[in-house]
């Protein structure tokens, strides 16, 4: 399944490393990544493929949410369909 991850937080060292290491540990493949810092707020969007992982989507989602809570990151993971539907005619 392809999904979009969004990460936002106050900018600091190691956010990308933390998120990407978690994804790597879970076998989730990153297809695309976009990152910017605006007025001190770090924002990153990732296009990921969860089919390369041995974990279920729910397990991956839980691990991501847990990481977000422990490191004060606002993280979402959502199927890509929803963004395609809302922003492409």
């Amino acid at each position: 399944m392809k999904a979009i991850m969004t990460v936002s937080a106050h900018d600091r060292v190691g956010i990308i490393a933390s998120v990407c290491t978690l994804l790597s540990d879970m076998g989730v493949n990153i297809l695309d990544l976009n990152q910017t810092v605006m007025q001190g707020i770090f924002t990153m969007t990732l296009l990921v493929d969860t089919s390369t992982s041995t974990h279920t989507f729910d397990e991956i989602r839980s691990a991501i949410i847990e990481r977000g809570e422990s490191e004060q990151l606002t993280i979402h993971i959502q199927r890509t369909d929803i963004f395609d539907a809302m922003h492409k005619v």
């Binding site: 969004t6 976009n34 910017t36 924002t43 969007t45 296009l47 890509t80 929803i82 963004f83 922003h87």
Partner: peptide, 16 residues
């Protein structure tokens, strides 16, 4: 990939 602002707009619609 999709436009970053489109993605963040959707997330903001849901979150806020």
């Amino acid at each position: 990939m999709l436009n970053i602002s489109d993605i963040m707009q959707t997330v903001s619609m849901i979150d806020h």
